[in-house]
Amino acid sequence: MLLVLSQSNDLTTDKVLEWFLYYNYNNVLRINEKDFINIKEIHINNYNEVDFTLFIKNKRISLSQVNFFWYRRGHLHKKIKLANFSDNETQIQLKLFLDAEWSICRDFILNRLHDKNSLGNCFKTKVNKLENLERAKKSGLKIPNSIVSENYRMINKFLSCQACITKPISEVVNVMEFNRYIDLSTKEVRIEKKPLSNGLIFPSLLQNNIDKWIELRVFVVYDQIYAMAMFSQNNKKTKSDYRNYDNEKMNRGVPFILPEKIGNKLFQFMRESGLDTGSFDFIVTNQREYIFLEVNPAGNIEMLSESCNYYVEKKIAEIILKDTEHGQFIKEDYK
């Protein structure tokens, strides 16, 4: 059986599963983040192999039935209900305890699933941009010069040497103020003439603003690379981050062949990080240097797949099927 962990609104999963059906592979169970999970048993003893049995959406599944695990997105959640305690503090403490209890079981289950043939990794979804920059550098990729500082003078010094952008060190989150989202996406920054009163700001990431020719979005699944070049320079609105979509004149996204030597460094990076799939952002400078920006282990594939007519979802289905007992049944011409 193929087990998929995803979110109910993930179109990529929908599409890949359509291809499974088309290839006549029905032995698929999709778990969405919010699905109700019940542990019937996890047994770890001296006599048998480790196994577990779960009830998911009223279906019984045991570890031994699973022969492929595709981790796409989301997590295994447990609704934790507590009796009402008069003391609020007690309630909170107990809730924390139960959360911790559940998370151990959950991680154990997920680890065993990852022991199977698998794609994606639920323990690698938290992105650490700073770690990734270092790792990219070690893999031989070029990266933007970056500093993190909360010292106003340091920041101004960095700014005085080069044009800069700032972006979240973690991920963009939605914060509302007066019914509007605060825009936390990538921004250009300039030297402030007037220093803040105490000279302090929260630790912030600054990177030199790279004079870009094009941006690349590169999706990798195992050893397959799908790259798209995005042209946005013509459009003032999208100069620093192509995600500020411009509807009238959609940015051009076209198929791109990633040079082999960059591809090899990318694979090196993935080995170092324990990733078997991911979406990478690069900038290609006017001097044709390839600069690594970020990696998202479970990024959006749809736009890349559609703009470049790659049929990535079909490819993913075929790759997974090859690794399941069904592989041999796929007709040659589909491969």
């Binding site: 359509e18 088309y22 076209v254 007519n309 079909k314």
Partner: peptide, 26 residues
């Protein structure tokens, strides 16, 4: 009209033509 873009000779090979494949899972 952004039908073409200017580039260098070395860049030409980086941009393949569209693969005009067409499939449906039905």
């Amino acid at each position: 009209n952004e039908i073409c873009f200017p580039c260098d000779q070395e860049d030409l090979e980086l941009f393949p033509e569209l693969d005009k494949q067409w499939h449906i899972p039905f």
